[in-house]
Amino acid sequence: MNTIDIVLLVAMTLAAVWSVMGRSLLKATIGLAVTSAILSILIFRLGSPLAAVFELSVCTGLITVVFVSTISLTKPLTHKDIIEMSKKRNRRFIYLPIILGLVAFALIRAGIPKGLIMSTGETVGNVTEVLWNMRQLDMFGQVILIIAGALGVVVLFAEAKDDAK
């Protein structure tokens, strides 16, 4: 375990907390994108380059674009409204850093439990072999999900169009 991994993990957690506690939704979205980017670096360092590329391109790129589009399609708040709302929200979110600190303290205090690693079994081949030969049902599931997602968006936007009329 290198120091850089610890630094990346801490940075990722801080970015996640920032995205949760950030004042505006746009900043929260940027925080989420930073979390994804750091996570993709970690995934790459853990020997999974294909998943890292997916995480970086899809989660950091596409999902951020979807979020920003959604935010831009809803009415933006004025600066005064944001300050007013953030005061109320800060009261609800003030406990999060305290809870996180307590959980971190409890985890450090507990230390490494014994018998954490179970038997691993056989090692499988490369990722393409796994995806196309071993997890074929997952691929069908993914295709169905993507079609369902596309149809869902079409139905939702059509509904919105009807309302506009």
């Binding site: 853990l46 999974s48 294909l50 998943a51 997952d138």
Partner: peptide
């Protein structure tokens, strides 16, 4: 890592 990559 191959199996978990496929799941991820």
């Amino acid at each position: 890592p191959a199996l978990t990559q496929a799941l991820v």
